[in-house]
Design a protein around this nucleic acid. Structure first.
Length: 480
RNA sequence: GCCGAGGUGGCAGAAUGGUUAAUGCGACGGACUGCAGAUCCGUUUCCUGGGGGUUCGAUUCCCUCCCUCGGCUCCA
């Protein structure tokens, strides 16, 4: 196992990571409430933790990655009511869309996506435990609240001092609570909404306790790493800590807290409730998964990132195209000639440099997952490959493999440099080469009007041509 | 008000108590091309919010102020 360091939000410092039971690592990331399509802010968080898991697995840790699905809550119910749909089915549908986006993005590291509604027994057991321990109370309508005053450490993660909070700053004061900062762990049922029987009457789980019930069951009372977007620190993660540590007596609930930064939309937080969201699915459609991942990983995961429609991803596309150039060409050559192709060997100093670079890439990521620095190193490699004047076309299979090593690392850990499977598939794969042949003949006989007509038509159809010494390459303009 | 995250070139965005502050985009020049695009090479001295302090030396550490964003019970 390679040692690494990670910024822990609780202690606010970069700490050496030590798992509870190496090589196993328990990771829990707060997933989403699938009441609407995912936006690119969600994409950032889940790509970030995907890279964390990819890296850890490469380094020899055995990660069990759980990401929950809040498939029942107020917003889901409200949205379902507006659309005259069943909330659980609505959640199921949006979750399927989310999974599709994640798959396209190359996020396949999650081991298990538990649904909140599948953990009602665990939730009820925790509610019971908290009542027994007198840190939760039953309100007159049958709702159960956690009494924050009984948990003095509340606020430690966010630095909030509970007494300094402004009750009702944004949400109306609820008179069922003993104190405004108390939060609901079991909600009394409203007629017409999904509900479960409980000793306190029919109801449904509160948001915060879903996570602790799941982690208690799946990862234990204490586990290694908890991740999520920065916006969940308060109150959600504070509440998780309060519930879990009160119910189990095990402290701390989690050893390391990782929070990824926001994506703002031209300066303002991107949020479903504000409505200033850029669709994840549409962004992938327009720019390709590689460009999205590059965009996310091109900044440190804790830095805020500002998204400007039409600009941010366009710039990322230009940069990523350059970065991936040699990787694409190598893949083309291997695809055409096979891995055993004959040719010149790679100069030994370049082969050694490739190995050395892979070490540096691992070391860079092991320092709080500095993906931007890793990308800078990869750019250095792309430049070096160009500078050395290495004619990739003339290298033998072994040489190509050696020179590709840093890009292979990028594919394994960052999820970049995946070739879009659509690029050479389907009818296009037959038709485009035919047109290219016709264009080549036209060029040979000097009929440039015809050659340009073909190129223009293909461009209009979304196919980008690249005339090279060894022929004309083509790709879809919108795939990364 | 309280808490948190930020402020680095035209733009995006890293890093470090110390030679010319990475890398990319853009721009400019060149190579290649029938042309264009793409690609490749080169150039891009003047950039660390303001003010103090510590230090031989601060972008980095400390204090203070200003600004932006977020949280203060919906949020990735």
């Amino acid at each position: 196992m390679r040692p690494f360091r990670v910024y822990d939000s609780m202690t606010r410092q970069v700490r050496r990571f030590a798992p509870i039971a190496p090589p196993r690592v328990g990771l829990y990331v707060c997933g989403l409430t699938p009441y609407a399509p995912a936006h690119i802010g969600h994409g950032r968080t889940f790509v970030v933790f995907d890279v964390v898991v990819r890296a850890l697995r490469r380094w020899g840790y055995r990660v069990f990655y759980v990401q929950n699905v809040t498939n029942l809550d107020d917003k889901l119910i409200a949205r379902a009511a507006a659309e005259e749909d069943d909330p659980l089915e609505l959640a199921q549908r949006h979750f399927a869309g989310y999974l599709r986006s994640m798959d396209r993005l190359g996020v396949r590291s999650v081991n298990y996506y538990p649904f909140a509604t599948d953990y009602v027994p665990e939730i009820l057991a925790q509610v019971r435990e908290l009542i027994d321990r007198k840190v939760a109370y039953v309100a007159r309508d049958g709702s159960v609240y956690f009494e924050v005053a009984k948990f003095p450490r509340f606020g430690a993660l966010s630095g909030q001092n509970v007494s300094a909070l402004q009750p009702g700053a944004r949400v109306e004061v609820d008179e069922r609570k003993r104190s405004p900062e108390d939060f609901v762990i079991w909600k009394a049922a409203t007629p017409g909404e999904p509900s479960w029987e409980s000793p306190w009457g029919p109801g449904r789980p509160g948001w915060h306790i879903e996570d602790t019930a799941m982690t208690g069951r799946l990862l234990g009372a204490r586990y290694d790493l908890h991740g999520a977007g920065l916006d969940l620190i308060f109150p959600h993660h504070e509440a998780e800590i309060a519930i879990s540590e009160s119910a189990t007596g095990e402290v701390p609930m989690v050893n390391y807290w990782m929070h990824s930064g926001f994506v703002t939309m031209t300066g303002e937080k991107m949020s479903k409730s504000i409505g200033n969201v850029a669709s994840l699915e549409e962004s992938i459609d327009e720019y390709g998964a590689g460009v999205l991942r590059f965009y996310y990983l091109n900044a440190h995961y804790r830095s805020p990132v500002d998204f400007e429609p039409g600009k941010s991803l366009a710039e990322a596309r230009e940069a990523y195209r350059r970065l991936a150039g040699p990787s694409d060409r190598i893949a083309d050559l291997v695809e055409r000639d096979g891995p055993e192709r004959s040719g010149d060997p790679l100069p030994p100093e370049l082969a050694a440099a490739a190995d050395e670079l892979v070490d540096r890439l691992d070391a860079t990521l092991a320092e709080d997952f500095n993906t931007r620095e890793a990308i800078a190193l990869l750019f250095g490699w792309t430049r070096r490959v160009g500078e050395a004047g290495v004619a990739l076309d003339h290298l033998n299979g072994e040489g190509l493999e050696a020179i590709a090593a840093p890009y292979d690392w990028g594919r394994e850990v960052l999820g970049l440099f995946e070739r879009a499977p659509a690029t050479r598939s389907g009818a296009w794969a037959t038709v485009v080469p035919l047109l290219l042949e016709a264009r080549a003949r036209a060029r040979t006989r000097g009929d440039y009007a015809e050659a340009d007509r073909i190129r223009d038509q293909l461009t209009a159809a979304g196919v980008r041509l690249e005339d090279r010494a060894d022929g004309t390459r083509w790709e879809f303009a919108d795939t990364g």
